[in-house]
Amino acid sequence: MTFLKRGVPLGIAFLMGVLMAFQYYVPHEHSKAFLELMTRWDKIIAGFAVFIGAYSLFHLHYTRIKRRAAGWGYSFFVFVGAFVTIAFGLYNGGEAFWHDKKEGTMFDWIYMNIQVPAGATIFSILAFFMASAAYRTFRARTVESTVLLVAAIIVMLGRVPVGALISQYIPVAADWIMGVPNLAAKRGILLGVSLGAIATSIKIIFGVERQYLGGGD
């Protein structure tokens, strides 16, 4: 049983890791076809994973309602939103879900008039919170924090017309900050992150890193 619970998944990870790393260096049509097939399999498995996420969210809100936790009444609206959207998605404008997706259905209407405005508004609210957080935390106490503050102000002013009205050099300075020191730092961070990702991938393939198996046997 330990073999099925530990040995097989470690073997699958090793096999898939080695095959996928190897196929990159084999410029043959079979190699490309193999990559396409595996990517398709991955897409299908990820599709099933969405249902685990849905179950998890429903379970969380069902428990909140069952236990009458603080604000439990609002959890009903999660179910209302999800079931109405799923129902119209499955109805598919009268053609049912086993046919190709129809455009301009009630499902698209819900997306355009609920999800898009709600998502955009939530993210735009962050502008207020970021401004208030910056006001409270951005203090030019040290040279480093002053550098950060000045860079942020120049980039913000350089992206709006008022920056050019103050001085024609502000947009140029903003472009220079984005294109030179910002690029250099981002590149350094990216190199470090990439080396870390490669090292972790090697550890996963050879079974040194096993966190993805979860706890237990």
Partner: peptide, 21 residues
């Protein structure tokens, strides 16, 4: 906010069906 979470979940489920499964 809760309605948005529900709609986003419903949208993801349906799009996963039509685009992947």
């Amino acid at each position: 906010e809760n309605m948005y979470v529900g709609v986003a979940l419903g949208y993801t489920v349906i799009i996963t069906w039509f685009n992947a499964l």
